[in-house]
Design a protein around this nucleic acid. Structure first.
Lengths: 334, 334
DNA sequence: CTGAAAGCGCTTACAG
DNA sequence: CTGAAAGCGCTTACAG
């Protein structure tokens, strides 16, 4: 099965390649109806399919953007991706998703790969560890938008949750329900991972705001693999917490797993709020109170910002930070 | 920021484009050490990044495959995708994921788009509605592998779950636990959606095998939006079921939602098994007994089959169907 | 050991 | 209204 090209169509239809190309690009201004029909018929007859690669090479646009997420296992990432895809679909753009798996080297590889593939722009959930490379993108005026994490000193549009507010909402709700011994459970705190840093500081500020003391032993953070023992330690304290804020979906799952294994009862033994509205929050027993991120809006915004940059590639307009508001979804876990 | 090309590197290094190209492709056989170093330095100095598009155009391979899933919302799809990506990463292939969203027109568009982008092969969770197009792919000897759904009369490698066995495992387990009034809850039965058809027939055969009568009113299938009322109807029967097999993750979620809203108790009021090992099966109260698909192995197999086809593009070898075994994961919901 | 030339499949000014 | 020619950024036989 030989590939049929524009040259074959031209020969068959008795016109030049240019004319076929005009036809393909809907430039009918000067084309005789007759020619148009002839080309159309030939295309169908030969089963011609354009080779976008060749077009992209010439036009210097692939109508494709790349998205690199730090870790696809987070619901937030998948929701944002859906939103980005929706926006792109509308504009007839395609999107290539890559998962850095929290590994900076992978992220680096993907950035290179996507640029080599000539994608028109990039949306990054940055690992935070490849600052030099981020900086390079920006100084080359390559269209790029960051989401979820803020890299200090980088002049680029960034879409973020108001993370402190998320913790505030949770702590407020705990306090309103009469809780005062409130612990927090977080993945490892790393300076570049904005949500973790800010949610923790939000937690502290909220406690202060309610004039509750901050107890260091109530602040637990660690890798998924260590969480069970960390949580265990928390419950073994002489004066253990009566409520826990899980700062993301993975921590929440670990916490629920612990609760279940130890036959604790929610909210009798322990009150619970999770940031990220997990899929099973509603059907869990009891229903899980969560703080939801407006993931869809955030993804949409990121895509829109990127398209704006792609279009105005010349003028390197000001970089801005966009903060989005979380919402508390009250259910039955406290 | 002008793009630097192979020609710029050549000029700067004082060699020809061919030599630079040889360097890039690691063909050092006849290259003087000196030349090699000079090129390397120039590349770093200019910040040269190869344009893969141009290479792909010439080499007629993009080292990219496409995956089109019928519906990304199913856990099974996401797990399969992970596996495919792993295999591809190893071979330095890239993968573009598309979600047909159960809409045949979208699937059609994506097939065209991916081929236009010259992907080297395709893995399809077919909607089943574009048989002509599938047929075209196959008769053009285009590398393609199907997964999850079997399209009758199509000569192509297909990776499937042993769906009847999945239902058997569930019914067997129900029977062993003393249940005899067993209903089944499924998405709409469509002839081309193999898992639904086969899981239903497996359910029937399993009942027969245990000499239980098949009650038509115990077989309920419908769209997600109708499920609540369908389930309600099921429980309103004068002689309602004591156990329900949910044939996929979406049905299971609907069922759990109903159970919760109506304050039913699992397994006291109703025993439950779901096909697809949902993420929260373990932490749910009670733990949910599920039938797991070996999604990872299935994805791996699909990718391997595709690579085999990509390599042996000449000889259109025999198409085969590969069936994978489900496993029952016993928890506490019956 | 390296270079000149042709070509991958398109698009796009420009000429007529 | 349509065609000839150049060019996008690479690779690859082939010549020397």
């Amino acid at each position: 099965m030989k590939k049929v090209t524009i040259a074959d169509v031209a020969k068959h239809a008795g016109v030049s390649k240019s004319t076929v190309s005009q036809y393909l690009n809907q430039r009918f201004d000067y084309m005789r109806e007759e020619t148009k029909i002839r080309i159309e018929e030939t295309i169908n007859e030969l089963g011609y399919k354009p080779n976008i690669l060749a077009r992209s090479l010439k036009q210097k646009s692939t109508t494709t953007i790349g998205v690199i997420v730090a870790n696809i296992l987070h619901v937030f990432s998948t929701q944002v991706i859906r939103a980005i895809e929706d926006v792109c679909n509308e504009k007839d753009f395609h999107v290539i998703i890559c998962n850095a798996d929290d590994q900076p080297e992978k992220e680096k590889k993907y950035i290179d790969m996507l640029r080599a593939k000539q994608v028109d722009g990039l949306i990054l959930f940055p690992t935070g560890k490849n600052v030099e490379q981020y900086q390079e993108l920006i100084s080359e005026n390559y269209p790029v938008v960051f989401i979820d994490r803020l890299i200090n000193g980088l002049q680029t549009d960034t879409v973020l949750l108001d993370n402190e507010k998320a913790s505030f909402l949770a702590v407020d709700s705990f306090v309103k329900h009469g809780y005062s011994k409130i612990a927090v459970l977080s993945p490892p705190i790393e300076p570049d991972v904005t949500p973790r840093v800010e949610r923790l500081s939000g937690y502290k500020k909220a406690l202060e705001h309610h004039q509750l003391s901050i107890r260091e032993e109530f602040i637990v953070s660690g890798k998924t693999t260590d969480m069970q023992s960390l949580i265990h330690h928390l419950f073994q304290l002489s004066d253990p917490p009566k409520a826990i804020l899980a700062t993301n979906d993975r921590s929440l799952m670990e916490l629920l797993s612990y609760v279940k294994k130890n036959k604790l009862s929610i909210p009798k033994d322990i009150g619970l709020i999770g940031i990220d509205d997990v899929s099973f929050a509603d059907i869990y027993n009891p229903g899980l109170t969560t703080v939801a991120q407006p993931a869809f809006e955030m993804g949409e915004k990121a895509a829109e910002l990127l398209f704006k940059r792609i279009q105005e590639k010349e003028e390197p307009n000001q970089a801005e930070i966009y903060r989005f508001e979380p919402t508390l979804i009250q259910r039955e876990s406290l």
